[in-house]
Write a protein that binds this DNA or RNA. Structure first.
Length: 212
DNA sequence: CATGGGATTGACT
DNA sequence: GTCAATCCCATGC
């Protein structure tokens, strides 16, 4: 429920944010608000996939499935994982370049009742603690592949000013076998909603970067 | 054309 | 800890 005096909730992301390097966009999205029709929360975990990354869907070029990854920045790349789950990415960098940020976890903040209905679960920390869980909780499916992340229905906005600052961690990505050593997973410290805990000794703090 | 693996999750031993 | 659910795509014959 944004008050008319709260510029923080209506402030836009930098217009060119998604056109920047995926390695800049990924940590910048930690802490941002992700919403679909009033349901969503704060992004607490992401991973970066760049054009030269063997683990990226874009690595071997454009296919029917990954076409939106090569489209304009600031769009959604939604694909079906393991034949079952829909996973959400934010497309980055110039059109023609396959690079995207996988959204891996949210801290649920808005519309928790609808999340619980869709997920068939009660516990808050289980609602959005994984890339397939958050898409189910927010009702994101393949029909939103290619949709605009600024105009919606899926929107990503900067964190409202009254949300506390976040301590950012970087570490290895999850669930991949190729290029698994690259520290391109980013998460917010102190949230139970991250999809998996950090292995001890495999994390480093990163200075949070302002969205400007 | 057949096969195998994957940016996952939930149920089960 | 193991395993099955099941779609897209890469690889190899």
């Amino acid at each position: 429920m944004p008050s008319p005096h709260s510029s923080a909730t209506t402030r836009a992301l930098p217009a060119d944010l998604f056109s920047r390097s995926v390695h800049e966009v990924a940590p910048a999205l930690i802490g941002a608000a992700l919403l679909v029709d009033g349901v969503g929360g704060r992004i607490v975990e992401v991973e970066a996939y760049d054009r030269e990354d063997p683990a990226s869907h874009g690595y071997r070029g454009r296919t029917e499935r990954n076409a939106s990854m090569f489209g304009p920045p600031g769009r959604a790349y939604v694909y079906r994982s393991y034949g079952i789950h829909a996973l959400l990415n934010a497309v980055t960098e110039d059109e023609g370049i396959g690079a995207a940020v996988l959204i891996r976890a949210l801290e649920p903040l808005e519309g928790l009742d609808r999340m619980r209905e869709r997920r068939g679960l009660e516990r808050r920390e289980d609602l959005c603690s994984g890339p397939g869980k958050l898409t189910q909780a927010l009702g994101i499916d393949l029909d939103l592949n290619g949709s605009d992340l600024v105009t919606g229905p899926i929107t990503i906005e900067p964190p409202p000013a009254d949300w506390p600052p976040i301590e950012l961690f970087a570490g290895p990505r999850i669930g991949i076998t190729k290029a698994a050593e690259l520290p391109w997973r980013f998460s917010a410290a102190g949230f139970r909603s991250v999809s998996k805990p950090w292995p001890p000794g495999l994390r480093d703090t990163v200075a949070p970067r302002a969205l400007s």
